[in-house]
Amino acid sequence: MGDVVLLLLAALSCHSGAVWLALAIRAHWRQVTGESAPDAATVRMLRILGAAALLVGLVLCLWADAPSMAVLVWIMYLALFAFITAFTLAWRPQVLKLWLPGFRPRSPLS
């Protein structure tokens, strides 16, 4: 049963990673926040967060299964959550604000 929890956590981690990496792309940032583009520091931050989340996902997969199996699960997770993220962006982009806690839109004048 412990494996199930680990694999769920890994899923969550990989999903977050995919979302953050997507938000680092200008077009998707605009879809989610309504702002034209994230600043350079935010982009870097999102990329680091995204990569780190994917890495944590891999570690959790390795913890849950034998390494050979874990790698397969992880690669398929990446595919699945990239796909889910793309679909969320297409139909419910505002949902992804969940991954930007504390985000305040800049005023239109600034």
Partner: peptide, 16 residues
Amino acid sequence: FKHWLLRWLYVFGGLA
């Protein structure tokens, strides 16, 4: 192998 999650992920991959 015995890994139901991976099995379903494969179905996703195949249908993709």
